[in-house]
Amino acid sequence: MTKAARTIRKIAGAEPVAAALVLGSGLSSIGELMKDTLAIPYSELKGFPGGGVSGHGRDLLIGWMGGRRVAVLTGREHYYEHGNAAAMRPALETLAELGAETLLLTNAAGSVDERFRPGDLMLIADHINYAGMNPLIGEATDRRFVNMVDCYAPDLRARAAGLAERLGFRLGEGIYLWYSGPSFETVAEIQMAIRLGANAVGMSTAPEVILGRFLGLRVWACSSITNMGAGLSSENISHEHTKAMAVQGAEKLRRLIPALVEEL
């Protein structure tokens, strides 16, 4: 067991968690939906995110949501912070050791498809690892050869789509393309993403999906669309804009995620 897992159990008790949730830029308010919550600063947990990006939290929350005990990472570490695609591996390994069988991921993303506009959610059906980095580089065992077919669990996607319909909003599926960041994409890169079949672009998530599958977790992911890609609108693309617009998607995720957790 990791040192972080022992620390968490000492503070929050040994009762297992049913799911782990990672919150993206501007989405940390989703953690406010939990009940009987214990907050543990990342700084107290060995291997947990150490850098930090504005708009991301820096605490692990353990509590109840949708009638299930869950662990929530209020922020993630990105490849662009230190050049380490495996930065989230210690945290995800720890949450798997705490009993999590399902990994729910959220992010803020830019749309390259007119069907997904700022304020919409996009359920991720698959991804393109255009950054080319892989968090399993250096893994010495044959477990590194992870099968990525249906890496975004089809049953969870179907449940989420049905829940969104009942909640009264559209939840379309799309392909997420991972750029390393931290600079935003050029107009030419956005046009390339469209030609490659992407529907949205972002700077996270794909490494965690790979790690989740490596750890044997069911994975689900959803993007909060904050802007159109470079050259597709007159928006001034910036991180401040991303954080501000993520609030619109967060309101829908605040309704969707607890309902999805309840059905796990």
Rank of each mutant, 00 (worst) to 15 (best):
residue 2 T to F: 02
residue 3 K to P: 08
residue 7 T to D: 11
residue 7 T to Q: 13
residue 8 I to F: 00
residue 8 I to V: 15
residue 10 K to S: 14
residue 14 A to H: 13
residue 14 A to M: 12
residue 18 A to M: 09
residue 18 A to Y: 08
residue 21 L to W: 01
residue 23 L to Y: 00
residue 31 G to A: 08
residue 32 E to Q: 15
residue 33 L to K: 15
residue 34 M to Y: 06
residue 34 M to E: 04
residue 35 K to P: 05
residue 36 D to Q: 13
residue 41 P to D: 14
residue 47 G to Y: 02
residue 51 G to K: 14
residue 53 V to R: 00
residue 57 G to M: 03
residue 59 D to W: 04
residue 59 D to E: 15
residue 64 W to H: 11
residue 65 M to G: 03
residue 69 R to G: 06
residue 69 R to A: 01
residue 72 V to F: 02
residue 73 L to S: 01
residue 81 E to D: 09
residue 86 A to G: 11
residue 89 R to D: 04
residue 99 G to L: 06
residue 99 G to I: 08
residue 100 A to N: 03
residue 101 E to F: 01
residue 103 L to A: 02
residue 105 L to H: 09
residue 106 T to C: 12
residue 108 A to H: 06
residue 111 S to A: 15
residue 111 S to E: 06
residue 113 D to K: 03
residue 114 E to D: 14
residue 115 R to C: 07
residue 117 R to W: 13
residue 121 L to W: 01
residue 122 M to C: 06
residue 125 A to M: 11
residue 128 I to W: 01
residue 131 A to H: 10
residue 134 N to E: 07
residue 137 I to T: 14
residue 139 E to K: 09
residue 140 A to H: 12
residue 143 R to M: 10
residue 144 R to E: 14
residue 145 F to T: 12
residue 145 F to Q: 11
residue 147 N to H: 14
residue 149 V to Y: 15
residue 154 P to Y: 04
residue 158 A to V: 09
residue 159 R to M: 15
residue 162 G to N: 11
residue 168 G to C: 10
residue 170 R to Q: 10
residue 173 E to F: 00
residue 175 I to T: 15
residue 176 Y to N: 03
residue 177 L to H: 03
residue 179 Y to H: 12
residue 182 P to D: 10
residue 189 E to G: 08
residue 189 E to A: 08
residue 192 M to Y: 08
residue 192 M to A: 14
residue 199 N to F: 10
residue 200 A to I: 04
residue 210 I to H: 03
residue 213 R to S: 06
residue 214 F to G: 03
residue 215 L to G: 02
residue 217 L to C: 03
residue 217 L to T: 01
residue 220 W to V: 02
residue 221 A to F: 05
residue 223 S to V: 04
residue 227 N to W: 06
residue 227 N to P: 08
residue 228 M to E: 10
residue 232 L to E: 09
residue 232 L to G: 08
residue 237 I to F: 05
residue 238 S to I: 12
residue 238 S to V: 11
residue 238 S to T: 15
residue 243 K to F: 13
residue 252 K to H: 14
residue 252 K to D: 05
residue 256 L to F: 05
